[in-house]
Simulated assay, not measured.
Amino acid sequence: MGDEPAGIRIDYVELPSLTAHELTRAFYTKAFGWRFADYGPDYSATEGGTVDVGLNGQHDDALSAPLPVVRVEDLDKAFDAVADSGGIIARPIFAFPGGRRFHFIDPSGNELAVWSTR
C-alpha cells in the first residue's frame, strides 16, 4: 500500500438499481443524507466526495453487481496496461457524460471500470 502512482485509485462505485431506481435513490438520501445529481431518468450520482456513488437503473447498461471504478489521467495508457497485464477487456473505451471509460475483468473474474475526464 502507498506504492500506487499518485491519483490512481478507486474513486467511484456504481450500484445497479434496475428494479427500483427511485426507491433506491430515496433510500440513500434518507438513510445517509446523500444528494444526487440526475443524468437522465435512470442514472443518479453523488458528486464531490472522496468516493462517489452512481445508481444505474439503465436496463441495457447496468451490471448485476457493484462496479468499482478506477480514475486515471491517461485512459489509453491504462487500457494498454490492463490488456498487457492479462486483463480481459469487457467493454472497450466509450464516452459518457463526464468523460470516457472502459471495463475489464481481472484474473479472479471481477469486473471493474477505468475512467478519465480527458
Rank of each mutant, 00 (worst) to 15 (best):
A31W: 06
G7P: 10
T117L: 14
S17Y: 02
S108Q: 09
Y28T: 01
N110A: 15
L23S: 12
A65N: 14
N56V: 06
G98L: 06
K77V: 15
A83M: 07
L18N: 04
F32L: 00
Y28D: 02
E22V: 04
A37W: 06
A6P: 15
D74P: 15
L18K: 07
K30E: 06
R101F: 10
L67V: 12
Q58F: 07
R101P: 02
L67R: 15
L63D: 14
F96L: 11
W115T: 12
D42R: 01
V114R: 13
L63S: 14
H59I: 04
F79S: 10
I10M: 09
G109Y: 03
M1F: 07
L67T: 07
A65G: 10
P66I: 11
K77C: 02
V13P: 13
H21W: 06
G54H: 04
R118M: 07
D38K: 09
A45F: 00
H103E: 12
S108R: 05
E73K: 12
Y28G: 00
G109H: 05
S64M: 08
R91D: 12
N110P: 13
A95G: 10
R9M: 00
E73Q: 09
D42S: 12
N110G: 11
L18H: 03
L55V: 04
A78K: 05
L18E: 07
R100W: 11
G49M: 11
I89T: 03
G109L: 04
L67C: 11
F27M: 05
F32P: 00
V13T: 15
F32N: 00
G87D: 13
F32K: 02
Y43W: 09
P66C: 03
D52T: 01
F96I: 14
I105G: 01
R35G: 11
V114F: 02
R91C: 11
D84S: 09
Y28N: 00
H21A: 00
D11I: 02
D3K: 07
D61I: 05
A81V: 12
W115L: 12
T24E: 14
T29N: 08
